Simulated scan of single mutants.
Amino acid sequence: MTDLLRTQSLSVGRGDRVLLRDFDLAVAAGELVHLRGRNGTGKTSLLEVLAGLRPAVSGKIERPAAGLHWLGHKNALNGDLSVLENLQFWSALQHCDPKTIPAALERLGLARLRHRPSRTLSAGQKRRAALARLLVAPRPLWLLDEPLAALDVEGLAHVGALLSAQLDGGGAVLVTSHQPLPVDAARVRSLEIG
């Protein structure tokens, strides 16, 4: 299997504190890695460094040339725009085909809400709208920080289907969650941080 992400002797900090030292990780195509650990152990900081949003203290990171998706705690939706308009804006930023948006909305159970202003959505609906970005522009690697937050049973099922499809298509996922992931446990490699 081809590694889609690899770190060597990676050290990650927040402020003046080093949270992880000499962290080595390889994530292969078709693999889902569940980062686990108590709050404050550096899971989010690690994902931010892997996504290129903050610098590492030291070490080396190899990322896929075809890019990655980052989904953080915040949904990054403009409350004044509809769900559809938010995805159209994001699609334009990513230079991808907006024709994929209707199918993404349908798949995440948001088609009937596409014209609603994002500010009027429930927390779970906002989370699903953010997750729809994963489908609009395929990327080989997903870095997901607490993607299950605020989701109901239906939303969890949607995420489980997204994760399985990503793995089946040869992609990889690195995810933090305090909840069990909604996929077959045999497909998950757990990694304790801290």
Score class of each variant (00 low, 15 high):
57 V>D: 02
112 R>H: 11
39 N>E: 14
43 K>Y: 10
51 A>D: 13
70 W>E: 12
167 L>D: 11
139 R>M: 12
111 A>Y: 00
146 E>S: 05
156 L>G: 09
145 D>H: 01
146 E>N: 10
41 T>W: 00
118 S>I: 10
148 L>D: 11
161 A>F: 01
64 P>E: 08
139 R>W: 04
70 W>N: 14
166 Q>W: 00
152 D>K: 02
133 R>D: 14
96 C>S: 14
57 V>Q: 13
115 H>D: 11
48 E>Y: 00
103 A>F: 01
26 A>V: 13
106 E>A: 14
127 R>P: 09
135 L>K: 03
138 P>N: 02
160 G>N: 07
28 A>Q: 11
80 D>A: 10
113 L>W: 13
142 W>P: 14
109 G>E: 05
73 H>T: 15
144 L>F: 04
55 P>Q: 06
61 I>L: 10
168 D>M: 01
77 L>E: 03
113 L>P: 00
122 S>N: 10
127 R>M: 06
72 G>Y: 02
164 S>N: 08
80 D>M: 01
89 F>L: 15
86 N>Q: 12
92 A>Y: 03
56 A>C: 02
136 V>G: 07
39 N>V: 10
162 L>M: 15
130 A>P: 01
57 V>C: 04
27 V>Q: 07
131 L>K: 07
129 A>R: 09
81 L>Q: 07
35 L>Q: 11
45 S>P: 02
135 L>Y: 07
74 K>T: 15
42 G>D: 03
105 L>W: 06
94 Q>H: 11
121 L>H: 14
30 G>L: 13
147 P>T: 14
65 A>C: 02
58 S>K: 08
105 L>A: 06
65 A>Q: 13
154 E>V: 09
113 L>V: 01
97 D>A: 12
53 L>F: 12
86 N>V: 11
150 A>H: 07
86 N>R: 08
113 L>N: 04
145 D>E: 03
86 N>P: 13
33 V>A: 10
77 L>V: 08
40 G>D: 11
107 R>S: 14
29 A>W: 01
115 H>E: 13
69 H>M: 06
47 L>S: 05
141 L>F: 04
67 G>F: 11
128 R>W: 01
87 L>V: 06
134 L>R: 08
41 T>P: 01
51 A>R: 02
116 R>I: 09
27 V>T: 03
